[in-house]
Computed example of a mutant assay.
Amino acid sequence: MADETAPDPADEIGGDRDEQSQRTSTGMRVLVATVAVVAILLLGAAAGLLLGLPGGQGVPASNSVDVGFAQDMSVHHRQAVQMAGWARDHSTDNAVRQIAFDIETSQLGQVGRMEGWLGLWDKPELPTSGKYMTWMTGPEAAAHGHGATNPNDPGVVTMPGMYTQQEWQRLRSLSGRELDVMFLQLMLRHHQGGVQMMEYAAKYATNPQVKNLAQSMLLSQGKETETLRRLLTARGGQPLPPPT
């Protein structure tokens, strides 16, 4: 007599097919997103190169605001891109995934422009001193405790708003609402941490395109900061202490 509790082979095959179809669909979404991200970065780099030497001016000095901003903000942006990419792929909240995608795509394009300028100027993508914000000088930098305010030890090892490795590992261990809240907290603090550099470059950069990019970042990230704060509050989260 047949075992009435035995699974139907057809059901098992169908289940396998459904699971395989789901894995394939997920893989395709990740592939499409990855291709889009690479395309945005390349387009940004091309835009940077097409600008030529911004403003038709000569190559800026290695210690200039223009070079320092392009180097440091590219590093700062890339961390935001990393966080946003993780949230885009692992959050189940559509609003969180949308803001993550928006941040990822916009900042990748900006990284492409800045690295395109650095390549055209024959400058390294990273500061050679091993420290950041050495290009920020004077009373404004001193007021924030950053920049080349100490001739014997200029700059900072970590830029404001950057997450720690412990925070990154914790973010990757979370799921659901906990993931969304921590992502929004970290990204909000990250946006706030970049404001000082953007404001300084918008005021003191000598190349018009560099100045304009810094001003554009201030505008777009100001709007994103409002959205991040609103999403965080709606999900029961509180902002982290502001970066110093």
Results as ranks from 00 to 15, higher is better:
Pro54His: 04
Val67Asp: 05
Val81Asn: 06
Met83Tyr: 06
Lys131Glu: 00
Trp117Leu: 03
Glu125Asn: 04
Val75Leu: 13
Asp72Gln: 09
Lys131Asp: 00
Val67Glu: 10
His144Gly: 00
Ala141Ile: 11
Leu49Trp: 04
Gln110Val: 08
Trp117Asp: 00
Met136Trp: 07
Gln107Pro: 02
Asn94Gly: 07
Leu51Ile: 07
Ala87Ser: 12
Phe69Ile: 14
Ser91Trp: 05
Pro139Lys: 03
Asp89Gly: 00
Phe69Arg: 03
Gly58Cys: 06
Thr92Arg: 09
Gly68Glu: 10
Ile99Asn: 02
Gly145Arg: 04
Lys131Met: 01
Ala39Gln: 08
Gly55Lys: 09
Met83Ala: 09
Leu120Asp: 01
Arg88His: 09
Asp93Met: 06
Val67Gly: 07
Asp66Pro: 07
Leu42Thr: 05
Gly48His: 01
Arg88Gly: 13
Val111Glu: 13
Ile99Thr: 13
Gly112Tyr: 05
Asn63Glu: 14
Arg88Thr: 04
Ala70Trp: 07
Ser64His: 06
Ala142Asn: 08
Gly138Met: 12
Asp89Leu: 14
Ala141Leu: 08
Arg88Tyr: 05
Ala47His: 03
Val37Cys: 02
Leu108Phe: 04
Ala84Gln: 07
Val75Lys: 10
Ser129Gln: 02
Gln107Asp: 04
Pro124Val: 02
Gly85Phe: 07
Ala87Leu: 15
Gly112Met: 07
Thr105Gly: 04
Gln71Gly: 09
Phe101Ser: 11
Gln79Cys: 10
His90Gly: 03
Arg78Gln: 14
Met133Val: 00
Ala70Arg: 05
Met133His: 12
Met73Trp: 14
Gln82Asn: 14
Met114Pro: 00
His144Phe: 13
Thr128Pro: 00
Val75Asn: 05
Leu118Pro: 02
Ser74Thr: 15
Gln110Ile: 01
Ala100Met: 01
Gly56Met: 09
Thr92Val: 09
Gln57Asp: 05
Met114Asn: 03
Gln82Cys: 12
Thr137Phe: 00
Ala95Asn: 13
Trp86Ile: 10
Gln82Met: 14
Trp135Cys: 08
Leu43Glu: 07
Leu108Lys: 13
Pro124Asn: 04
Ala47Gly: 11
Met136Gly: 02
Thr137Asn: 06
Ala45Glu: 11
Gly130Ser: 00
Ala47Val: 08
Gly58Ile: 08
Asp72Ile: 10
Thr137Val: 15
Trp117Ile: 03
Thr92Glu: 13
Arg97Asp: 08
Ala142Tyr: 04
His77Cys: 10
Ala87Met: 10
Asp122Leu: 11
Asp66Asn: 11
Met73His: 15
Ser91Cys: 05
Gly119His: 00
His76Ser: 10
Ile40Ala: 12
Asp122Thr: 04
Gly56Gln: 07
Lys123Gln: 15
Leu42Gly: 00
Asp66Phe: 12
Val67Gln: 03
Val65Ile: 12
Thr105Phe: 09
Met114Gln: 06
